[in-house]
Design a protein around this nucleic acid. Structure first.
Lengths: 149, 149
DNA sequence: AGTCAATTAGGAACCATTCCGCATTACCAT
DNA sequence: ATGGTAATGCGGAATGGTTCCTAATTGACT
């Protein structure tokens, strides 16, 4: 049920009293069509603009923020590269390629036990972020050396 | 061997042909004295300036970047809060309090097997980032509700 | 159709971080 | 100690993703 579909998102929007606008539909479609990309705001903007003329970047940010705030999608925040958005809300590890910036999902077989963390440290977990950085298969194959640039 | 000490850092600087300047010493001292804080650049700047008058923010950024680039410390990159720096290079999970922004280290008992990830996905891991967000014991205790803001 | 609050567009503002050119300095060999 | 030299430091401007602001528009519901 954590899989992202256009219908499920629309349903969730309505359930929460949020309006379903053409702008939002365009943005949602882009998110779904490029779910494997984990696209950033700029990318979503450029693509969604093709579907809905006059769309503004502010709207994209507002919408992505709204979806994220309601737990419909998840915002992956970065510093050096722009934030990315994903619809896969299951616990998993994001494999982030340093070269092509692609982000792959890796389903965690047996994750770290969050309950144990809470018990041992008194820390109450509300969200997790598990990321591995490195080089994806494609980028490794393209060139012999991967350390370069 | 991953523990951060002033001497070890100086040693590493010299080994790599980097100069040991008063500015850098001041910055390193701050990093060590506040290692549990996982301080940000601004904090380091404010504190280090007390030790070395005239220190500029650019220098702090440059030094932290240099230390990080050489693997002497690790940069924790964020978007909404400023980047933070830590000397603990062992694999661990950072517990980040949403309220006070404190960052605690949690030694991982049995981490996710990186080798398995590599084998299954062909992804070559160079760095990891494991973070749990939530509320630390202190912030949980201060108030009954933790969701508000 | 009418009402109202949510949403949108556009641009200014924000702010951590980086970049730039020049002055200063740590370090090594003499 | 001294001098040469490349690294480093400084200060301020620039960068760029994201947020904020306000007026105008538009869905959703009656």
């Amino acid at each position: 049920m954590t899989e992202i579909t256009k219908e499920s998102i629309i349903k969730q929007l309505k359930e929460r009293g949020l309006k379903v606008t053409p702008q939002r539909l365009a943005i949602i479609e882009v998110l779904i069509e490029h779910r494997q990309l984990h696209p950033g705001a700029r990318f979503v903007y450029e693509e969604a603009k093709k579907k809905k003329r006059g769309l503004s970047l502010s709207t994209v940010y507002a919408t992505l923020g709204e979806l994220s705030r309601h737990g419909i999608i998840k915002t992956l925040q970065f510093d050096q590269i722009e934030n990315r958005y994903e619809g896969n809300l299951e616990q998993h590890i994001n494999l982030i390629c340093e070269k092509c910036k692609k982000i792959l999902d890796y389903k965690v077989p047996n994750a770290v036990d969050q309950r144990r963390v809470a018990k041992k440290t008194g820390f109450s977990i509300t969200d997790t972020r598990l990321e591995y950085y490195g080089y994806c298969r494609e980028c490794l194959g393209e060139e012999g050396s991967k350390g370069g640039e």
